[in-house]
Amino acid sequence: MSAQSKQWIWLAVAALLLASAGVLLEGYSLRLLNLALLNVITVIGLNLAFGYCGIIHLGQAAFVGIGAYVTALATVKLGWPMAISIPVAMIAAASFALLVSLPLIRLKGHYLALATVGVNVILELIAKNWVEVTNGYNGVTGIPRLTDMMPGMAPEKAFIPIVSVAALVVVWIALRLRHSHLGRAMIAVRDDETAALTIGIDVGRVKVIAFTLSAVIGALSGTLYAHYTGFISPSDFAVSQSILFLMMLVVGGEASVIGAILGAIALTFLPELLRDLAAGYVAAGGSEKDLIARLLKDGYLVFYGLITLIVLMALPKGLAGLLQRWCGRAASP
């Protein structure tokens, strides 16, 4: 079977899984699934810059934020329809990414990483302090929701098909890119810049493209987020979020689309699973006051960190590497 038709089968299976999850899940799990799918989009974007091209990118949340803020403000304050504000928000993020990437890609390694943090911090400060435009810490409220178009359905359920379609399209685009001259060039640049130069790859240009694409895809996720929750605030797009996105990618398996998907889903659900575990422990007769309950309940982030650390140390290729080992030599896209 050709790699192309295999891809279609995988995408169809994923669509089926998502459809049934949308029907079967209820309440909070449904919300988590929506957030996980939004994170899938963001992290697949990040994978282009970090996983493929090797740009240590600790500012992806900033581009998610640009997407969210531009569409939110355009719809709330200017009354634009979402069909216009969403593409405009993505173009805004792309233009900004293009602009900052030109000086940024001249930096290497840790300096580049720090510069991306800087970009994120600056945008966060603007969102917090330019109160007349952004409403500062209070955030933007009353953002029109995409799910308003389906009035008969519960919003959480109605959003599943929207975000699923978006995620599947992004996955499809990412796979197409991976097996194009751009995908090969990005990976070549990360593996060996000098060798890439000598076989005709314009390293600077490839980095700018990777960084910008990564931002656009992040911004798409941001616009959907804004029109899903109806409310955004600066803390949604803080540096800590960027670090989380990078962690999702590394835990899932960098430089692989499957890894980005697995990591985003796993790390979105993990904290909630741990919280549930604490509730279960108490329900099973454990005292709410004893150490285990308190650790699970309040210290779940400790476990979260520990589990992440264990994955990083035991699985250098992340969850995708584990999957590959189980399935033998599966075609890892």
């Binding site: 060039a185 990976i187 005709g200």
Partner: peptide
């Protein structure tokens, strides 16, 4: 390029 296959290595750089 360590993370590309042999064929992809030879194809890399084509634009």
């Amino acid at each position: 390029f360590q993370r590309l296959t042999v064929l992809e290595n030879v194809m890399a750089g084509g634009c």
